[in-house]
Amino acid sequence: MAERRSPAAAFAARFEAASAGGGPRLAEIPFLTQIDLRVDPKSPAAERIGTAIGVPLPLEPGTAVRGGDLTVLWLGPDEWLLLGPDGAAPGLVERLTEAAAGEPVSVVDVSAQRTTLVVAGERARDVLAHGCALDLHPRVFGPGRCAQTTLARAGVVLVAGEDGFRMLVRSSFAAYVAEWLLDASLEYVTPPAGEAAPA
């Protein structure tokens, strides 16, 4: 297979440098499997799909569930995004299509449509609050919550975890969002020795 390149690959070194300074931890998780699933939640197909992937599709808006190495995100009343490890797409598409068994279900491999950025650590919420209008308070948007929203001027899918957030960003926006995150993190990164700290 020819060489693959992830949308934020060029930022690896800068993410690492920023993460080393006590600010938020920034990183890209490249090449995750992402499958967009559209199905009527009340249909037998939805139930069969839940069985096939080992976890029922979450019906509560803005929630995410985990089952094995899959995470299922609620995107809309009849839309979910399935996240899995690199390389899982063909198998997953097949499993979903089989479970649909001819019912009108849409299964689309969108793995390369968005890339996954990690914004973690103590200052993750502070950094995101510079561009995200959602209330990210842990009581409101804690682990298990997800949302489609905007960060600065880009659409994102935000997923809350134990130690921060995963953020799914359209590939063409990845460089913009990466630059934005680095800029917003600047104030939280301890300056290298010799430079004055903020008062």
């Binding site: 808006p61 803005g62 009343p77 209008a133 959602l134 949302a147 489609q148 929203t149 905007t150």
Partner: peptide, 10 residues
């Protein structure tokens, strides 16, 4: 009706 209150800009 699904996501709850969000900013008009969305």
């Amino acid at each position: 009706p699904w996501c709850g209150p969000r900013d008009e800009a969305e």
